[in-house]
Simulated scan of single mutants.
Amino acid sequence: MATAPQADWDPYASGCPSREVLDRIGDKWTVLVLGELAESGAKRYTALRRKLDGVSEKMLTQTLRALERDGLVRRTIHPEIPPRVEYEITELGATLREPLRALKLWSIDHMNEVLAARAVYDRRIGSASHEPGD
């Protein structure tokens, strides 16, 4: 259930809840976790960790807890022995499916241009002796 935005929510202002949400959504591991759950459906913790190369247990746990707190991911404990825990994207989290997909496709479509820009920058900075912002 969406509500009308409050006029005083300003993501550029420190401490604003909208800024906190943008920080969460823009986080590297958040993007990858939500993207994976949006594409694959419910997953167990170990399956998510295997899929997200490079994520530590601590970072994945922190990310999943924060996403659950924000209502973007649902954690379900199945009463089995041993207990089985699954994570899935919520209805609210699913509203990010298209924006995340668009970012993923953009990164794939424009990777060659980004790599070329990096090479130009690195050559320029490598030959310069000044600090950024000078």
Rank of each mutant, 00 (worst) to 15 (best):
L22A: 08
K104C: 03
R24G: 01
T61F: 12
R84L: 14
E131F: 10
M59G: 02
T3K: 08
L34Y: 04
A128Q: 08
R44S: 05
L32V: 03
L48M: 06
R44G: 13
A42T: 10
M59H: 07
Q6M: 08
G54Y: 03
L34D: 02
E20I: 01
E91S: 15
Y45T: 03
D134R: 10
A102K: 12
I25R: 01
R124W: 11
G26L: 03
A4Y: 04
T3W: 05
V31A: 06
R19N: 06
H110S: 13
C16A: 15
V120I: 14
K51S: 14
H110N: 15
G126P: 11
S107H: 12
R75V: 09
S18L: 12
G15L: 04
V31T: 00
D122L: 14
T90A: 09
L115K: 09
L96F: 15
A119I: 12
S18P: 00
S129I: 15
H130F: 13
A13T: 05
R69F: 03
E86L: 10
R84Y: 05
R75M: 12
E113W: 09
V114C: 08
G35L: 06
R118L: 11
P17I: 11
Q6I: 05
L52T: 02
I81C: 04
A4P: 02
P132G: 05
G71K: 10
L64T: 00
G35Q: 04
R74V: 13
D109Q: 12
R101I: 00
G133P: 09
E39R: 13
Y12M: 02
P17D: 14
V114M: 09
C16D: 15
T63W: 07
V120Y: 08
P17H: 13
I25H: 01
A102C: 04
L72T: 03
A2I: 12
V21M: 14
G41D: 04
Q62V: 02
A38C: 12
L22F: 07
D109S: 14
R69L: 03
A42W: 07
A116Y: 07
A13F: 02
R49C: 02
L32P: 01
D27H: 07
C16N: 15
E86I: 08
